[in-house]
Design a protein around this nucleic acid. Structure first.
Lengths: 150, 150
DNA sequence: CTACATTCTCTAGCCACTAGAGGATCAAGG
DNA sequence: CCTTGATCCTCTAGTGGCTAGAGAATGTAG
């Protein structure tokens, strides 16, 4: 039986995040010591590693919920898991394409501007005048923490 | 003088978003009709287009704030604009690299699994057993709306 | 005059956490 | 035994960049 700190170290999931997953129902509320501290045993630790791993691969919590569900019921057909993984892969592909388009735009914009003051700055100018650029870029997606895994 | 709906159509910025930008101080509170409706003139419309364009390129609002500031003061040195753009470009590059690594992992995982039930599913299995995969992936970043411009 | 559209303000929700307050409990050293 | 510092507890609020919805007022067309 490990306390939450030990579990956190072992799995790489931060303490508040473990509690958060518990509140979200991704893991069961563990037993407690008499003083109310959480005690985890091996299966919960493995479950947390599973979640961590899936998060590291960019799966959303809702997907992870489904995947955990399947992993809890090994007798069920697993087409769903495949579907989730493939859909996610498509998302990633789309995002890569997006970012590449973005990069092209940005490179064009950010090539060192010769102007000295904002009045002649290419960056500012290009942003101000949309017509000047390759139009029709799409919006990239939200900042994500980059947390390399153990 | 345009009302907020017309401005929204012209700039592609949604009405609630325009109000949001006003609340955030990215645009000035415009004059109002006697009944309290917002009235915009050309400079504000251009300012909104600027913001929209910068957002489409993935700049964060805090960066956009700085860029707008520079564009308001054309006499200032524009090194800052360059720095913002270059930093952003680096971010994008990093994100692309990240996603590519992710894609490799996912492709490995999601190649159609032969198992029929979750018990033998490659997806589930790989997630459960971290050792089985190329380790050390990083976490990709948050879902972003993809809003093509114009 | 009656619909219907547009606008207003305000609040709450999204995602996956993270940070911080304020308090209890634990383990180790003196 | 007592103190110190680490760990843990619960709870609330904040992050970014919006979006959705309630409920009310105003504008416009037929």
């Amino acid at each position: 039986m490990l306390n939450i700190g030990a579990v956190s170290k072992r799995t790489g999931v931060k303490i508040p995040t473990i509690r958060f997953y518990e509140a979200e129902g991704l893991i069961e509320p563990p037993p407690r010591t008499t003083s109310g501290r959480r005690l985890y045993s091996d299966p919960e630790v493995r479950r947390l590693s599973f979640i961590r791993h899936a998060r590291a691969l960019g799966f959303e919590l809702s997907d992870i919920r489904s995947l955990l569900d399947l992993s809890d019921h090994p007798e069920r057909p697993c087409g769903e898991a495949d579907r989730i993984a493939r859909r996610h892969l498509e998302d990633v592909d789309a995002r890569i394409a997006q970012l590449r388009a973005l990069k092209r735009e940005l490179t064009r914009i950010a090539t060192p501007c010769e102007g000295v003051s904002a009045g002649q700055c290419r960056v500012i100018e290009t942003l101000a005048d949309h017509g000047a650029c390759g139009s029709d870029h799409a919006r990239p997606s939200g900042r994500r923490r980059i947390v390399s895994e153990a």
